[in-house]
Structures are given as C-alpha cells and as structure tokens.
C-alpha cells in the first residue's frame, strides 16, 4: 500500500510534466505554442497574444477555439464591448503554415479587417494582420475551425482569412 503523501507527490510530478507555456514570449506577434507541435497535428485551440509591442508586458491574451462552440449549436464568440476605443496600432498574429487551411473568424476583434497575409512558400509561418483592430483592453478571441468543420451557425460578420489572395483551401467564396 502507498501513502497519501506519495499520491500527492505523484500528482505534483504529473503536473510538473506540464510544459510551461504560461510565459508569453517577448515579441508581440506570436501564437503559442506552435513550435512544440507537429505540423501534421492540427491544433484546435491556442492562446494568442494580441497587441502592439508597447503593450507586450500587459499579458495580453486571447484564445483561439475550434469547432467546440459550434457543436453546442450556438455561437458563443466573445463580445469585447461596444464602447471600444480605437487602437493606435494594428496588431497581428503569426500562424504556422499548416494552419493556412483553416478558417479564421475574427468575431472577437471588433472592427477588425483581416488581410495582409504574406509569406513565401517555404515559410513555416504565415502572418495575418488585423488592421483597424479596436479594443479597450487589447483582448481578442479568434476562433479557428479545422477544414470541413465549419457549420451554418457561422456568425454573419465572420471574415475569412485570405491566403495569397485566395480563400483558404476547401472554402468557397461568398
């Protein structure tokens, strides 16, 4: 038989095995923790930091979520608020190249427009700029659906990311 102290130690050992991704990187435009994952393993959720470099120390965090909300039959996107002041700077996040076949819904980014996708073919990352981003707190939620998992409950104001001027793979325009 074991003791409860040994059980506590075991549970803490297990918790200690959790990689420390709580520390957001110093640069403002990173999506975490893409570097740790296999490019062949599409990720459904991420913690993303949005915001201008000057705000990097403010632990600005958003969350990217997949088809979870859709499975409930209701859209549960974040509503950052209607009385938001414009951000003086556009913000952007960097997504890995294997994620370009996904669809981004910028519901949580009030007033956002999506564009500015550019990267060479060999790049491991694509950059998506959110011009006109407005938020009083620079918090944003970006929802990500895996290809083919988009459902009719998509919000009316959702916008697709365009990759090299084209809609993401598997998506039709309109």
């Amino acid at each position: 038989m074991h003791t409860s102290q040994q059980l506590r130690a075991a549970l803490h050992d297990l918790a200690d095995a959790m990689p420390d991704t709580a520390e957001l990187p110093g640069d403002s435009d990173e999506l975490l923790p893409a570097a740790k994952r296999s490019p062949r393993t599409p990720r459904r959720s991420f913690v993303v930091k949005l915001g201008a470099p000057a705000l990097a120390g403010a632990a600005v965090v958003g969350v990217v979520v997949g088809a979870v909300a859709l499975s409930s039959g209701s859209h549960r996107a974040a509503q950052p608020g209607s009385s938001l002041s414009p951000s003086p700077k556009a913000t952007h996040l960097t997504i890995p190249s294997w994620f370009t076949t996904t669809v981004f819904d910028v519901k949580g980014l009030t007033g956002a427009t999506v564009g500015g996708v550019s990267a060479d073919a060999d790049s491991q990352q694509r950059q998506v700029s959110f011009d006109g981003f407005k938020s009083d707190s620079h918090l944003g939620i970006v929802r990500v659906w895996a290809p083919g998992q988009w459902t009719p409950s998509r919000p009316a104001d959702a916008q697709d990311v365009r990759v090299n001027g084209k809609p993401p793979m598997g998506r039709r325009e309109g």
């Binding site: 297990l14 095995a17 959790m18 990689p19 991704t21 923790p33 994952r37 990720r43 459904r44 959720s45 991420f46 913690v47 965090v61 969350v63 990217v64 979520v65 979870v68 549960r76 996107a77 974040a78 509503q79 918090l139 939620i141």
Partner: peptide, 20 residues
C-alpha cells in the same frame, strides 16, 4: 487528463467561455 495538449485544450476552452 494526463496529456499536455489536452490540458491546454481544456484550459483554452474554459478561458474562452470565462472571457464571455
């Protein structure tokens, strides 16, 4: 859950819901 990626998934989902 005993799995780092799933743990991150759960936390991300919950934080999203909590944010709302």
């Amino acid at each position: 859950v005993g799995n780092a990626q799933r743990a991150e998934d759960i936390v991300a989902d919950v934080l999203t819901n909590a944010y709302e």
